[in-house]
Amino acid sequence: MRQRIIVDVDTGVDDSLALLYLLASPDAEIAGIAATAGNVPAGQVAINNLAWLDLVDAPDIEVALGATDPLKIPLRTTEDTHGPQGVGYAELPAPARRISDRSAAQMWVDLARAHPGDLLGLCTGPLTNLALALRIEPELPRLLRRLVIMGGAFNHPGNTTPTNEWNIHVDPEAAKIVFDAFSAAPAHRRPVVCALDITETIEMRPAHLTRLASRAGSFPIETVTPADPPAARSAASNPIIRHVTDAVRFYFDFHHGYDLGYLAHMHDPFAAAVALDPTLARTRPATVDVELAGTLTRATTVADWAGMWGRPPNADIVVATDPDRFFDRLITRIGDYARARFPAAVGEHTLTAESG
């Protein structure tokens, strides 16, 4: 059965893989894509979303432009992490599709009202659009079937300051609005939170890219290395594999430059996979709040695991997963999708068997 999902992204290298994962998933139907300012400005995010949809000749999926700035602070973007356009070294063709006439916040509200109790929400960027949607429709926590958030850090160092994670850091006021609002959600509709504690264990490495190319039947099979110069570009026959390779190689270079290894944390595709199949994750309920006043800790997500605040849980935080199982599924789905979308780009080498 296909699950209807609204995706709120700040695309972004790993957001790009999340979109491709959902497009490739037979159990997903993307009802709309909201462009959030974060990794790059909202306008560029929208262009990236439209470009990926064009590249794969996806069905007509609405892409709505979100707010250009966070609720109360200036926008901070991170082109050093994701590249000047947000897609690493990839050079996506200019899209022919157009941005929707309605705002991202209004799209959230309209889709939730049109499909009460049926719509999944997935947020892999700052929570600005969802916070604005909650101002329009406070009943969203009860209208959505479930919400999955990639964001926060709990028993783990931050990746932006010593204590906080990027998505929350960009718009902490929006994050607090969302977590406060979802305190009203029934237990079975509490947000599932994929925080750095788990997503930094989802490490993509060059071998995953070669497996993906093999699964897609793309040729030649390339192995990216730290020695590859910035000007290098993939020669893969399959356009999806070619652009994914160029995008992810930038992400590898970024992590390598910070002595984290030649790898890339796949935060957002993991959250997308959990949205479709919660059995990929083990969760623990907690009450989550966002620090707004701390001199050193502003934008930190704080989890009350033991009920010390006397408030009921408002989130189910992912505390365990199986990264190998996730990557097997990602490679199978995107690889098969790339092969099916571009059959003329399939080579003669043997298909690599993957578990699904």
Rank of each mutant, 00 (worst) to 15 (best):
M1P: 13
R4I: 07
V13I: 15
L23V: 05
G32F: 09
G38F: 04
A42N: 04
A42H: 06
G43S: 14
V45P: 01
N48G: 10
L53P: 07
D57E: 14
A58S: 11
A67Y: 08
R76D: 14
V87E: 07
G88M: 11
A90V: 09
R98C: 14
V109I: 11
A112T: 03
L120I: 07
L122Y: 13
L134C: 09
E137F: 10
P138K: 12
E139K: 13
E139L: 12
R142G: 10
L147G: 00
G151E: 00
G152K: 01
H156F: 11
P157T: 02
T160I: 15
P162T: 11
W166S: 15
D171A: 06
D171M: 04
F179N: 01
S183L: 05
S183P: 01
A184S: 15
V193I: 14
L196V: 02
I198V: 10
I202F: 08
E203D: 08
L209C: 01
A216Q: 05
S218W: 03
V224P: 09
I241S: 09
Y251M: 03
F252R: 08
F252S: 09
G257E: 06
A264M: 06
A271N: 12
A272M: 03
A273M: 11
P278T: 07
A286V: 00
V288D: 00
V290S: 00
L292Y: 12
L296K: 15
W305L: 00
A306Y: 11
R311E: 04
V319D: 10
P323E: 04
T332P: 03
A353Q: 12
E354T: 04
